[in-house]
Amino acid sequence: MNRWRYVLVLWVLLCLSGQIGLADQKATSNPDVFKIGAIYNLNGSQANLDIPSSQGALTAERLINAKGGIDGVKVDVIVKDGASDPETIRKVTEDLIANESVPVLIGLSDTDMVLPAAQVAAAHHIPFITSGATSPKLPEQVPDYLYLACFGDNAQGAMAAEYAYQNLSYHTCIVVYDTDMQYTTLLAQYFSERYTELGGTIVSQVPIHPKTNVSDVFSNLSSGNQPDFYYIAVGPEDAPGVIQTAHGQNKVPIIGGDSFDTKNLSNAVLDTDGDVYYTTHAYFGGENISSEIQNFKTDYISEYGTEPTPFAGLGYDAVMIAIRAAGNNDLGTDLREGINQIHDYSGVTGLISYVNGTAIPKKSVHLIYTDGLSLTQVDNNVPEKVPNP
């Protein structure tokens, strides 16, 4: 029996005996299959991020199994739709644990969405690797069982602040942020902290929410002295419309976070002829890319007929982290040990290491510029200083 089959057989036996806190699971695991539960919002407000991410996860499955799996063990990524609803997410998490006996769960791209899934997973002693939820507070909210495959919002907020102040010489800013999401409030907070620390001036902080008339907000802002730029923290569903509205009032440059990284952004910018920068997790447009990225792009385009987004890359990397974790752990009974042993894994979204027991990998942040016609990577670095969570 090879090493991988030994690991998976031992996992099944321990599930059956209840020795790893999974006595309530149905014993449906197959020692010839390594199952990964994947929860993504294929409908609703988060679909723009989660559909590509789920496709990236399935791309990893296809590429691994095309090579014969892992020492002959097939990888099975089981995708469930959370429908952008916390209660639905909770239910599908319970279903994956009870009916599929998954040893690890991945997925989701929003802090408020990942918490119900990760809390259920932790209650069953199963690690959850979020592919795209970026709150650096998440590991504290679900201790010991919740890991990030992505950087934290404190890192991308700091990167945006440093580039704006040091590279673009933007010294005044108005911050517009959605108060309805933990992601947007934290991102605005981390950006503001680092920007003012550098010497930048925040002229005003403008909170908005789903019932806000955004047109009135930017009309009022355009009547006063204009800042060097707007920093806008909103969700992926709202980003294109807010950008169009802001640039419809004036042509002040805009900087935002990874929620800007959707298929609809370019049209929004093109319609207003404005300048937009945003931080994100990867850039697949360069010529000097690794063979792993090239294989990922080729398979993704062949299967889905479109270029992969950075969130697709995060879904791919989340699957690879789970597989490496299982391979690192000789006993196979607690994949957290395997995750903690991952150092310098060259994923499609960058170098990934979990150092000194941290649940958030230290990764570089990509900064993209678009005028609506094309995307250009203008920077790719680890920020000089990152605010504490």
Results as ranks from 00 to 15, higher is better:
M1Y: 12
V7Y: 08
V12Q: 13
S17F: 03
G18E: 07
A23K: 08
A27M: 10
A27P: 06
N30C: 08
F34I: 05
K35D: 06
K35R: 13
N43C: 05
S45W: 09
A47S: 15
A47Q: 12
N48E: 03
D50E: 14
I51N: 11
I51A: 05
L58A: 04
L63T: 01
N65C: 08
N65E: 15
N65A: 09
G68R: 15
D81K: 13
A83R: 14
D85P: 06
D85W: 14
E87M: 13
E94K: 06
E94R: 05
L96I: 11
I97R: 00
P103T: 03
G107W: 00
S109Y: 01
S109E: 05
D112L: 09
M113Y: 10
P127I: 11
S131R: 04
S131V: 07
S131Y: 07
G132Q: 06
P139T: 14
P139R: 14
E140A: 15
Q141A: 15
Y145K: 10
L146Q: 12
L146F: 04
L148G: 03
A149V: 07
C150T: 09
G152W: 00
G152P: 00
N154Y: 00
A155F: 02
M159N: 01
A161E: 09
Y165P: 00
N167P: 05
Y170C: 05
Y177L: 02
T179A: 07
M181Y: 12
Q182M: 11
L186G: 03
S192T: 05
S192Q: 05
T196L: 09
G199Q: 15
I202S: 00
V206P: 00
P207T: 09
T212N: 10
N213I: 07
S215Y: 07
S223T: 13
N225E: 15
Q226P: 07
F229W: 12
Y231C: 04
I232A: 00
A239W: 07
V242Y: 09
Q244E: 15
T245P: 12
H247E: 05
S259T: 12
S259H: 13
D261W: 03
T262V: 12
N264W: 05
A268V: 01
V269W: 11
L270A: 15
D273T: 10
D273H: 15
Y283C: 03
Y283W: 13
G286R: 07
N288P: 02
S290K: 08
E292I: 00
I293A: 14
Y300K: 03
Y300V: 07
G305S: 07
T306A: 09
A312R: 02
G315T: 02
D317T: 09
M320Y: 13
A322G: 12
A326M: 15
G327D: 14
N328F: 00
N328Q: 08
L331K: 14
L331F: 02
T333P: 08
E337Y: 11
G338P: 01
N340I: 05
D344N: 14
G350C: 08
Y354P: 00
Y354R: 01
G357P: 01
G357R: 01
V365Q: 00
V365S: 04
T370P: 08
T370C: 06
T370D: 11
L373T: 13
S374K: 10
T376L: 08
Q377N: 13
V378C: 09
D379W: 04
D379G: 08
V386R: 04
N388C: 06
